[in-house]
Amino acid sequence: MANLGHIYRKNGTVYGESEKKANLSNIYRKYGTVIALFVLVLIISIMNSKFLSMYNILNVFRQVSINGLIAFGMTFVILTGGIDLSVGAILALTGMVLGLMVASGTPDLIAIPLVLLLGALLGWFNGVLISKVKLQAFIVTLATMTMFSGITMIISDGIPAMGITKNSPLLNFFSQGDILGIPFPMIVLLVVFGLLLILLQKTVFGRGVYAIGGNEEVARLSSLPTDRIKTSVYIISGVMSALAGVILTSRLSSSQPTAGAGFELDAIAAVVIGGTSLAGGKGRLFGTLIGVLIIGVLNNGLNIIGVSAFYQQFIKGLVILLAVILDRKSSR
């Protein structure tokens, strides 16, 4: 007789040890990041009670709004099996264009939609090279990251555009405004999350994103417009980066030529920590939101308890590495 190992009983049904481990594994896959966030908040709040103050909680959401928007767009890209290294450069370029337009007297009601359109065009450029020309996403976005950064330096001459919100009430509201005590960047983050969640989970387009990440050739043979969907996810990523650029420009009240440096790494980290597979086809936008919050809580908490910036870099890198290892193990 086969050795069934340990058994346990639940609701009158007898389960083997393997079934118990499978159930625990499923719980981890579904709620692992939420549990990790809860544990992180608990540890930091024990070390410093000010962490759980309402002021600091709202501050965390204000801080994560920029990375959150970029990470949402990055989630769509990674779900198709791609990558977008140009998001930080798109943020810097669109933010600089916004600053120069507002400084030259362009009304913010016109300038903001135009830079969102610019973000879409830059994303479309990436998407066409990847889907139509069939170049590797890593190489394309690495090249365009350098190109977009160069354009930012050319149009700005390397000089920041200052005092952007001084004569721009809408951008000032992006920075300082709130609705019912909730910071406006937090509202933007949650509204965009809700819209993108519906797009990913409730539409044919969203199912196509998962299908391409699972097996692009099968998706193509199933008559899915794979090239159009792949181009579209880079457009979404470009728009999200541009929107993040608007929020960052409003917060700084200036457009910095190097504003987006390193933002692509934080966005990818949030997506991976949130459980989206780098191989594509598996992941959730809600997981990305939790991943964004984990990084935000980690940054904010380490600052509050007085950890050196050098150690912070090491700890963040360690968390990302652990997330990648767990992703690799769960995909086997």
Rank of each mutant, 00 (worst) to 15 (best):
L24F: 14
D84C: 15
L170C: 09
A244L: 03
N299K: 14
A309R: 12
L190P: 11
I43W: 06
V60H: 09
G206W: 02
Q201L: 13
F314E: 14
N303S: 05
M186Y: 07
G280M: 09
S232Y: 09
V292P: 03
K166V: 15
T80G: 12
L121H: 11
T226R: 07
I212H: 05
K30W: 12
L129V: 06
S277H: 05
F51H: 05
P183K: 04
I235H: 06
L129M: 12
R332P: 04
S253P: 02
L42E: 06
G105Y: 00
I305K: 02
I130W: 08
L121F: 15
R328C: 04
M162S: 14
I78K: 13
G283W: 02
I57C: 08
L248F: 01
I46H: 10
A309P: 13
I182P: 09
M240Q: 09
P107Y: 08
R207M: 07
T94P: 08
G260P: 03
T288Q: 01
K202Q: 14
L98R: 11
L197S: 14
A137P: 12
V272M: 05
Q201K: 15
S49L: 12
G275C: 07
M101V: 05
D178L: 00
L278E: 06
R220M: 14
S131G: 13
S45M: 04
K50F: 07
L135D: 04
L278P: 02
F263V: 02
A2G: 07
S223I: 12
V97E: 00
F263D: 00
